[in-house]
Design a protein around this nucleic acid. Sequence first.
DNA 1: AGACGTACCTGACCGC
DNA 2: TGCGGTCAGGTACGTC
Length: 271
Amino acid sequence: MPELPEVETVKRSLAPFIIGREIKAIEFYRPNIRNQLPFDKITKCQDAKILEVKRLAKYLVINLSTSYSLIIHLGMTGKIYFEPHDYILKKHDHVKITLDHGSIIFNDTRRFGVFDIISSSEIEKNNYFKNIGLDPLVKEFNSEYLKDKLKKRSLAIKAALMDNAVVVGVGNIYASESLFLARINPLIKASMLNNDQLKKLVESIKIILLEAIEAGGSTIKDYKTPDGSSGYFQMKFKVYGKTTCQICQKKLQKIKIAGRTTYFCDTCQPE
DNA sequence: AGACGTACCTGACCGC
DNA sequence: TGCGGTCAGGTACGTC
């Protein structure tokens, strides 16, 4: 459950539960996930107050009063639950952060996620965030910016959208959905898009992500349901996982681009 | 520098 | 029921 809208939804759901609360303990239940878990930094969080919960790219950043920050990435299968003190650990629960009124649980089946503790002042230059592109929801993410980022790129536009150096947060589903809304063929070389297409694409990415955030928001209203995946934005997919084009009714194409399954309509998104 | 393949890991599903 | 293959919303790294 890990594209920008999902992380944003988790952030919005989690924040009111935890801001202003104090960390009583952090426990790890295995040595590593994608990274080594930071056993040596647990003391940096002891009795720390949670000041702020932010989203940076697809990472959650939880700033603490001790000038350290928790960094969480959900990978492909990461989930975060807020649970009462009598919660019994489940399979693939890797981290428990105990607060005074309950615990934050980080669960990640495939362990592609990240949980780290780093100095707050070093976040920007940390490897997780070095060389990342703009967040698609800021106003500086516009067609001029995208044009500049893509001018020397010969890869398919769909692969370019998933490159975090170009723009962060756009994953495999939303790359396909945005290109469909913009009527742009995902195989077109990134540097070949004209100004109209760039404009339309920027617009489409913002629309799709904002709609998804809105739809995802109602999912995790009942935040205790560790269902995680759902959210009704799935029902709004136009091409991802679909077989028929909703515009022209023709059969959709399903191909691989840079190793990832890509859906599009070769009539509505011509080369 | 940029493009591409592969690795990381578990589980669900499908055909035999 | 079991086995093997394939696939899954992400990212890092080696190689050409």
